[in-house]
């Protein structure tokens, strides 16, 4: 599916004392099969933007087309849209309400009108995807840890089998292992099931590692919309709006300044490793540089 946003603006509390322009003339197109990362400083409008993708926010001005149809028009079925575009909110564990994990994950599919058995089947599949085995099914979700609750909530969206998955900082507050697992799930979904993924994140490293296109928001406007390598060449501008480049980019820049012949547009660890190894191989061949540098670099990886 394809979502085209044209000149979208959104104002909170229009006509009150608390009026706030959260989005300002945004235009972008999300193509089927993309993995998009959205980054931006706190309050830049990320959450506001993605809530337009499934019609929870009604654009103050501008239009949104899903597969060519304007969703602001009378008669467009918002509910169908919500099943197609699965939206995982920031801190989704706060939306859990059922007595057992399985029932909670079934909520979405049941709203889709599925019979209990089919809903449960989809719920079980979704739970497996996020790494929750059978033993969790009958547990009370309120007895789980924060990270486990997060998985339950994400499974609740996956169980609806959306074509596009939009996640608002799904890894906030998780430990590194939990983070990698969740992001790994997203990568699998994207690669194997060709689900479109839109990932909102504060972590440049996550976005650079997983996304193949990055949208940078600043004060409700799009600052950059490009592939990671291009976006992260603007390190200075990013820092000015309260962001940063991924850590590897900084390391590579520092290495380059030290006189190593590596590319400083590298944004992911595997790329950096290849570059460093190549350079070390070449360097060690004729200059006999110390092997400590190599082990040090590897440990970082």
């Amino acid at each position: 599916m394809e979502i085209r946003i044209e000149n979208l603006s959104y104002i909170y509390g229009q006509g009150t004392a608390y009026e706030k322009k959260a989005l300002d003339n945004i235009s972008l197109t999300i193509h089927g099969g993309e993995f998009i990362g959205i980054i931006g400083h706190t309050g830049s409008g990320k959450s506001t933007l993605i809530q337009h993708l499934n019609g929870l926010n009604k654009a103050t001005s501008g239009a949104i087309y899903v597969d060519g149809k304007n969703i602001c028009e009378e008669g467009y079925s918002m509910r169908d849209l919500r099943f197609q575009v699965g939206l995982v909110f920031q801190y989704p564990e706060y939306q859990i309400f059922e007595t057992t994990v399985l029932k909670d994950v079934c909520f979405g599919p049941k709203n889709q009108g599925l019979y209990s058995e089919d809903a449960e089947k989809q719920a079980r599949e979704a739970m497996r995807m996020v790494g929750l085995d059978e033993s969790y099914e009958q547990k009370s979700p309120f007895d789980l840890s924060g990270g486990q609750k997060r998985r339950v909530a994400i499974a609740g969206i996956l169980a609806m089998k959306p074509k596009m998955l939009v996640l608002d900082e799904p890894t906030a507050g998780l430990d590194p292992k939990g983070r990698d697992e969740i992001l790994g799930v997203l990568r699998d979904l994207h690669r194997k099931q060709e689900i479109t993924v839109v990932l909102v994140s504060h972590s440049m490293d996550d976005v650079a590692d997983y996304a193949d296109r990055i949208i940078v928001l600043d004060k409700g406007k799009i600052l950059y919309d490009d592939v990671p390598e291009k976006v992260f060449t603007h390190v200075k501008e990013l820092e000015e709006v309260g962001l940063a480049a991924p850590q590897v980019t900084y390391i590579m820049k520092a290495l380059r300044q030290e006189g190593w012949d590596v590319k400083d547009t590298v944004t992911t660890l595997p790329e950096a490793r290849d570059q460093i190894l190549k350079e070390l191989g070449a360097g060690a061949a004729f200059a006999g540089r110390s092997q400590d540098g190599l082990t040090g670099g590897k440990a970082d990886d």
């Binding site: 499934n54 909110f89 939306q95 709203n111």
Partner: peptide, 13 residues
């Protein structure tokens, strides 16, 4: 408001 939206995203009406 937030919870309502989150549940609406799961098809609640």
């Amino acid at each position: 408001d937030k919870i309502m939206r989150a549940q609406e995203a799961r098809g609640a009406d």
